[in-house]
Design a protein around this nucleic acid. Sequence first.
DNA 1: TCAATATATTTAACATAGCAAATATTGTGT
DNA 2: ACACAATATTTGCTATGTTAAATATATTGA
Lengths: 150, 150
Amino acid sequence: MTDTPETHTDRKLPPTKRSIPIALIRAREKVMGPIRDMLADTGITEQQWRILRVLEEFGPLDASTLADRACLLLPSQTRIVQTLSEKGLVTRNADDRDRRKQTVAITEAGKSIIYDNLEEAEAIVAHMEKVIGREKLNQLLDILEDFQNL
Amino acid sequence: MTDTPETHTDRKLPPTKRSIPIALIRAREKVMGPIRDMLADTGITEQQWRILRVLEEFGPLDASTLADRACLLLPSQTRIVQTLSEKGLVTRNADDRDRRKQTVAITEAGKSIIYDNLEEAEAIVAHMEKVIGREKLNQLLDILEDFQNL
DNA sequence: TCAATATATTTAACATAGCAAATATTGTGT
DNA sequence: ACACAATATTTGCTATGTTAAATATATTGA
């Protein structure tokens, strides 16, 4: 009895169809579609929107906290905040106690962008709840939270 | 009775904490952490990995189909495939019937990269199943599929 | 006090995302 | 055959993702 030499073509791969990373990307693309359409009219990007949105919800934040809540890496955020600052939508100031820290705050102009599009944003969420169901969406959010334990 | 003029500061925003787009990003970041560590050693990126992975599963594909299955935009894919081609991990050939189409195929060198890291990849999935539970992961995949109906 | 460390943020460099326009090839009607 | 519309892919441009290195300020211990 001779052993057949094992080549990698013999080994089986798990299917990409039920891959968590890919499924997450796919869903995200679908979700972002209408949101991007909305943002296209406002002249700001998805990430810039997240920063404004977080600042409006939590008030002025230091860079690290802001990056965490807006799901951005610090280097990206640095550039985005600079752009937003040039547009007059946020301000940046060094903290008095710790001058390494930068405190970012939203301006009135920044708030206007959010509230001018609030209804449309709510409509997008409403549509998602209608198609998928509020039940499942909450279930989804719960499961997604579990990933923070990885 | 005088009406107080309504300013946008009076209106309430839904919390970002339970935002689907943000939750999807957060989960994705966590999932990709260990995967990126793995890929760092192989010298290829996450997207390059997806392309190799899809080509190995489905065989040679035209650009459009590949982009769809690997969740990449065509312009991005064009450039990624070019780098993969320069690395000798894939080949590119014009279709004989329709010379507009480009058929992309994985090479032996490309396959090796996948199979050399197969065990580690499986270990990452196993860990995810252990922490979150296979039940919830399947539930998650089911719900994420619903998003394609948006 | 002062050098060594640690922390917060930014810069640099390269890869990808996303959109619009250009290119190449095919199909269609006349 | 030929103008014209449709399809498949690539290019160009700007913005962001990602990692490593640089910068600036704070903190700590001898």
